[in-house]
Amino acid sequence: MNGEHNQNERYDLHTHTRASDGMNSPAENVRLAKEKGLTGLAITDHDTVAGLQEAMEEGEKQGVIVVPGVEISTRAGGKDIHVLGYFLNFNNSVLLERLEGLRATRDARNELIIRKLQDLGIEITLDEVVAGLDRTLREDESLGRPHIADALVRKGYAADLRDAFDRYLGEGKPGYASLPRIAPEEAMDWIRDAGGVPVLAHPGLYGDDDLVSAILERGRPAGVEVYHSDHGPEDVERYLLLAERYGLIPTGGSDYHGVRQGVVFHGDLGSRHVSDKCVGLLKEAAGIK
């Protein structure tokens, strides 16, 4: 399942760069989108908009439409819930301040994960994780669990990224940690405050459709991510019906993070996409002519 409507114009509305936990620079994601024949893509890094300016500039050069986005980390029902935001003003000072606070929470979470891993007898430090980036981490960039997973693989504690999550870093695993976060509906308000359009990300990953419905009812986002690399055909069918029930825009994207240890995670860029109609509806919801 790749999306709907006019397949001549294709947009991948969920991609990550090294501004958070992706492997590529924002410009590289844009060039890859061009190579794959996409009309456009969204850059949706975790709790940061640091990669958007570079992506927008490269999009101008390549003739690729870049949708400015973000993916905000929230918590509800004992689960980590992600909220996507599109067409937001990424220079909005209030938004930047709020995202900075979220990154501080993420930093504290990372330190807790490292301590948990050390308590398991794993010799790892946060400095080693950062050193593995082979570059200086900017203040407005975000360090995530995939970076810690990379370090576990390099040090021989896991075979690959998936193994690191299955054994240590996934929800419910001994190295998992989560600190109090804002609620999904608050993140949706933040996105609207910055002129953007909120969308609930990958509902199939939460394993609780009652919780998903409750979030949609409370937060009233403009859309729900129906097409995602980890959604099978039954998930797509189920969330299309949910989108119809709540009058939401069915969006989609690959959740591309780049290639780690030879494996694309979650899916290859462009492997999930939507048409220009979906993008047009998001723009309309944002009040963009």
Rank of each mutant, 00 (worst) to 15 (best):
A194D: 02
L161H: 05
E186P: 07
E185W: 15
L179P: 15
M188I: 03
A164M: 11
S142M: 06
R162Q: 14
A149P: 15
D189F: 00
H147Y: 14
E186C: 00
A187Q: 03
D160T: 11
P146E: 10
A158T: 11
F165L: 11
A194V: 07
E186Q: 14
A158L: 05
G170S: 06
V153N: 01
D208K: 12
G172P: 12
A194R: 03
W190G: 02
G196S: 05
S142A: 10
D189Q: 14
W190F: 05
S178H: 13
P174A: 02
Y168E: 03
E186K: 13
D193Y: 05
R192M: 02
D193L: 04
G207E: 08
I148E: 14
G195H: 06
R192W: 02
P180T: 00
R181M: 06
G172I: 08
D208S: 08
I182H: 12
D208T: 08
Y176C: 04
L169E: 05
L143S: 11
R181W: 02
L179T: 04
G195D: 05
A187L: 07
A149K: 15
D166A: 12
A183W: 10
L161R: 12
A183R: 15
R167A: 03
A177T: 06
K155A: 09
E186V: 00
A187E: 03
V199H: 06
A187M: 06
E185T: 02
Y168P: 10
R181L: 11
G156E: 10
P203M: 11
R154S: 13
A149C: 07
L205H: 05
G144W: 10
I148F: 11
G144N: 14
V199Y: 04
K173C: 10
R145G: 04
D208C: 09
L179V: 11
R154G: 03
Y168S: 04
G144I: 09
R162E: 15
G207S: 07
R162C: 02
G175R: 07
G172N: 12
G170P: 07
S142K: 06
A194Y: 03
A164T: 09
R167S: 11
I148N: 11
G204E: 13
G196P: 02
G172L: 09
D150L: 09
R181V: 00
L205N: 09
R154T: 10
A151D: 08
A177F: 09
W190K: 01
G207Q: 11
L179N: 13
R181P: 11
P203T: 06
Y206S: 01
A151V: 12
A151I: 06
D163P: 15
R162L: 01
P180E: 08
P184C: 01
A187R: 02
A164C: 13
P174N: 01
H147E: 14
Y157W: 10
L205I: 15
D189H: 06
E185S: 12
E141V: 00
A187C: 08
M188R: 01
E186R: 11
E185G: 03
A158P: 14
P174T: 06
A177D: 15
A177E: 14
D163Q: 06
G175D: 06
L152H: 08
D163L: 04
D150V: 13
P203D: 03
L205V: 13
D163E: 13
I148M: 07
R192I: 01
